[in-house]
């Protein structure tokens, strides 16, 4: 998966202007240190935290059913997925997650990061990425949203809430012959 092209990422970074870029760099140094996560193969702890919060924003607890991204280690699965992808994809994914975290500063000129927002602010900010004027932001949104949706709803815990009765062969033949 070539998450976003390098050219577009550079373009997006430039979009916000040199001064903001420098501010972003400063903020990156300032932002609260993410607690270490054992066993990460590609993502940094900060990127892992961003991905976990993206997933939680995309599929939060509450609403019509309790099952949510909090029940699945989406960020861990993303790290695992990336570990078997080419190095260029790994780098792009990391840059994309950093861009999401710095999104409030770079695209809304707010002196804060995505991970520091409240859940409601995060939802509003994340939603804005899906319709952002910059194609790169929409591309990143598509990639991360798709991965999250696949990871959360592929789990048996989600199925009773969405009317899916589970892999049909297992239902027909009994669990011993099923997957």
């Amino acid at each position: 998966m070539e998450l976003v092209t390098r050219r577009r990422l550079v373009g997006a970074a430039l979009l916000s202007g040199g001064a903001l870029g420098a501010a972003a760099l400063g903020l990156q140094l300032l932002r609260e240190k993410a607690p270490p996560v054992a066993g990460l193969r590609v993502l940094s702890a900060a990127q892992h935290r961003t991905m976990a919060l993206v997933a939680l924003t995309h599929i939060p607890p509450g609403g019509p059913f309790g099952w949510s991204a909090a029940d699945v280690d989406v960020a861990g699965l993303f790290d695992q997925f990336l570990a078997d992808q080419p190095a260029s994809d790994q780098r792009d994914a990391g840059v994309a997650l950093d861009l999401v975290d710095l999104g409030p500063l770079m695209f809304e000129r707010r002196w804060t990061t995505f991970t520091a927002l409240t859940p409601d602010q995060r939802l509003a900010h994340w939603q804005a990425w899906s319709v952002a004027p910059q194609a790169t932001r929409r591309e990143i949104w598509q990639s991360l949203a798709r991965f999250t949706g696949m990871a959360v709803y592929d789990q048996p815990g989600a199925w009773p809430h969405i009317g899916y009765r589970g892999p049909s062969l297992a239902r027909r033949t009994g669990p011993e012959q099923g997957p």
Binding site: A145, Y153, D154
Partner: peptide, 23 residues
Amino acid sequence: TPGILGSLVVQPGIEGKAAMAAL
């Protein structure tokens, strides 16, 4: 199947969950 359908949901948050609950 659920995973691929979940990956296509375009409404983040509770709205997206409502769309899945209505499957």
